[in-house]
Computed example of a mutant assay.
Amino acid sequence: MNNEVIITAALTGAGDTVGKSEHVPVTPEQIATSAVDAANAGAAVVHIHVRNVDDGKGSRDVALYREVVRQVRESGVDVVINLTAGMGGDLVIDQDDPLKPVDGTDLVNGLERLPHVEELLPDICTMDCGSLNFGEGSQLYISTPDMLRAGAKRIQELGVKPEMEIFDTGQLWFATKLIEEGLIDAPPLFQLCMGIPYGAPVDPGVLQSMVNMLPEGANWASFAIGRNQMPWVAQSAILGGHVRVGLEDNLYLSRGVKATNAQLVERAVTIVEALGAKVATPDQAREKLGLKRRS
């Protein structure tokens, strides 16, 4: 059991959710406001994607990240900033010609996924630790060992903490190799991602096996998508981990009731405290995760 739990709020993601809920933030102002609201509700960390303002689709535009981070930092609210570095890994192939990428492809190398991290120097950035079939159809997420080694080295040079996103056990195996090779500074940080087709299923036994594979001294959190989000808050804390909630992974507070990020964080706080644990403050999160406090 984890007695001091860090709550991360994943605010918007890059999925096709904008038309499914009016609460999904799109503009930099909306994302920043949602970050501040989530922090005030109890989130120590906010995980940030950005979206194109005109169509709501996920974006790698550094200017959008710059504006969100500026507004969060100038808000006066203390919160740990975690920027995604996973955009740029999408490959959609033609079934008849697998070497031909089609609409929806946004594939760049590992270093080209980091310009916003290089400029803004967040506390944390994510690093998706492997490739996988992303749902049905012909979409793949591509993150090769060479891409990951190059990205990990650059993130290390920047002094940013990588949050290693783990979608299956093979990715966890590779992440431990990055640690052994000296590309990840101690203490390492893992996010165990459950229920994303077709990675690790939402199964407590699978989570336990992944926790058993973690290197000694690692910090870790876990989340599950959709209606499993809140049960997974309890599951993660009971197994000794931290938790993640937010509209990136789930749009509902209860059946038929659409949520805001702040409401999802409030629900997570209730669950954590009902288990007899405390919710970590941003400074406690920094200490646990080995983060530098940036000015």
Rank of each mutant, 00 (worst) to 15 (best):
residue 106 D to I: 10
residue 241 G to A: 08
residue 263 Q to G: 10
residue 101 P to G: 06
residue 24 V to Q: 01
residue 210 M to C: 05
residue 62 V to P: 06
residue 284 Q to I: 03
residue 140 L to S: 09
residue 223 F to V: 15
residue 286 R to I: 14
residue 259 A to W: 01
residue 206 V to M: 09
residue 135 G to I: 13
residue 224 A to H: 03
residue 236 S to K: 02
residue 53 V to Y: 03
residue 181 E to Y: 14
residue 278 K to H: 12
residue 69 V to S: 03
residue 112 E to V: 14
residue 70 R to G: 07
residue 171 Q to P: 07
residue 128 D to C: 11
residue 245 V to E: 01
residue 204 P to F: 04
residue 260 T to H: 01
residue 221 A to N: 13
residue 250 N to C: 12
residue 123 D to I: 14
residue 3 N to I: 11
residue 259 A to Q: 01
residue 82 N to F: 13
residue 147 M to V: 07
residue 160 V to E: 08
residue 103 D to L: 13
residue 234 A to Y: 02
residue 170 G to H: 13
residue 131 S to E: 05
residue 32 A to T: 01
residue 108 V to W: 05
residue 20 K to M: 15
residue 101 P to E: 05
residue 60 R to A: 08
residue 96 D to C: 07
residue 49 H to C: 05
residue 157 E to K: 10
residue 286 R to Q: 09
residue 23 H to R: 07
residue 163 E to Q: 14
residue 10 A to S: 13
residue 141 Y to N: 05
residue 230 M to A: 09
residue 286 R to Y: 11
residue 106 D to C: 06
residue 190 F to L: 07
residue 150 A to Q: 12
residue 294 R to S: 09
residue 211 V to P: 03
residue 55 D to M: 08
residue 55 D to I: 06
residue 184 I to L: 09
residue 263 Q to A: 14
residue 209 S to C: 09
residue 277 A to G: 03
residue 165 E to Q: 05
residue 163 E to K: 13
residue 23 H to G: 02
residue 224 A to K: 04
residue 259 A to K: 02
residue 107 L to Q: 00
residue 139 Q to G: 08
residue 234 A to H: 09
residue 254 S to N: 11
residue 219 N to Y: 12
residue 162 P to L: 08
residue 275 L to T: 07
residue 251 L to P: 03
residue 17 T to C: 10
residue 32 A to N: 04
residue 280 A to E: 05
residue 156 Q to P: 04
residue 168 D to W: 03
residue 248 E to I: 04
residue 261 N to M: 15
residue 155 I to D: 03
residue 232 W to L: 09
residue 77 V to E: 13
residue 11 L to K: 00
residue 109 N to H: 10
residue 164 M to P: 00
residue 249 D to Q: 01
residue 11 L to T: 11
residue 271 I to S: 03
residue 76 G to R: 00
residue 3 N to Y: 12
residue 27 T to N: 02
residue 24 V to K: 00
residue 87 M to P: 10
residue 100 K to I: 14
residue 120 L to A: 05
residue 216 E to I: 15
residue 235 Q to K: 12
residue 71 Q to S: 07
residue 81 I to Y: 02
residue 120 L to Y: 06
residue 24 V to L: 12
residue 160 V to F: 07
residue 4 E to F: 08
residue 36 V to H: 06
residue 156 Q to D: 14
residue 281 T to Y: 08
residue 227 R to K: 13
residue 17 T to W: 13
residue 24 V to T: 01
residue 222 S to N: 05
residue 196 I to A: 11
residue 233 V to S: 00
residue 163 E to M: 14
residue 32 A to Y: 10
residue 131 S to P: 06
residue 281 T to H: 03
residue 119 E to M: 15
residue 270 T to H: 08
residue 178 L to P: 06
residue 150 A to D: 12
residue 76 G to I: 04
residue 218 A to S: 15
residue 139 Q to R: 11
residue 209 S to E: 14
residue 71 Q to P: 04
residue 114 L to Y: 09
residue 178 L to D: 06
residue 152 A to F: 07
residue 195 G to T: 09
residue 276 G to Q: 02
residue 100 K to C: 11
residue 290 G to D: 10
residue 244 R to K: 06
residue 195 G to R: 04
residue 230 M to R: 00
residue 30 Q to P: 07
residue 258 K to Q: 12
residue 134 F to E: 11
residue 41 A to V: 05
residue 225 I to C: 09
residue 84 T to V: 15
residue 160 V to P: 00
residue 88 G to M: 09
residue 142 I to E: 00
residue 104 G to Q: 04
residue 91 L to E: 02
residue 72 V to D: 01
residue 283 D to G: 02
residue 283 D to Y: 00
